[in-house]
Amino acid sequence: MRIGRLPVDARSPQRARRVFATLPARYDLIGSVLSFGQDPRWRRTMVRMALQDEPAVVADIATGTAAVAIELASRGEVRVIGLDQSPAMLAVGRRRVQASGHADDIRLLLGQAERLPFADASVDALTFTYLLRYVDDPAATLRELARVVRPGGRIASLEFHVPPRLGWRLAWRVYTRVGLPVIGGLLGGAGWWRVGAFLGPNIEDHYARHPLAQQLEAWRAAGIEDLEVRVMSLGGGVVIGGRRRG
């Protein structure tokens, strides 16, 4: 595993994907640290949005280590299909699913969000987490996600966000520029210092290129309506939910 000089370029989703693809266990930890330990609460909020019409089959995209898939299966009588493009992440996910006692309700598969291996309108609801920051064309990916959800089905997402209020934003910046790299360095040395240093700029860059309002437009353009946006934890995270038109 070589991290090398990778993460400084925040403008390369592909590159980011490669960095994190090899680092599943610590990736969860960094997610936890970056969210100030709030990510379980964000996940629960997203899962509640996705399950509100009691879907039978839910697709969880960018399922990673299957935290959301397990949350979905533990909250409702649902079958969950978890998809991720990283074998390393799914290997961890599979162990977690087995340990969770929900192995009968969850199926995992390797695939790409930009080219889902699902038929049109084949699932009742869909969730996705930390995904659009790592794709080249978020609007096209949203259209592909909406394609596989039946008309009227719920779609919900979770992503990091930059706190909108100036004071918190400055604190967030110090935390992501100094705190995260230091924590990363303590946990895993120089490579993890760089990973820690990568995330803050990567998140800010994502919103600079795709502001939240523009992303919501892309949701609507993809045929997802009744949008509900919940900026959480002083703006550190954002949960978006909606319903496929029809």
């Binding site: 299909i81 199926r107 080219r115 699902f118 038929a119």
Partner: peptide, 13 residues
């Protein structure tokens, strides 16, 4: 793999 998953799956290409 079960039938319900196979009902949903298609070729991504």
């Amino acid at each position: 793999l079960d039938d319900r998953l196979l009902d949903i799956l298609v070729c991504p290409a």
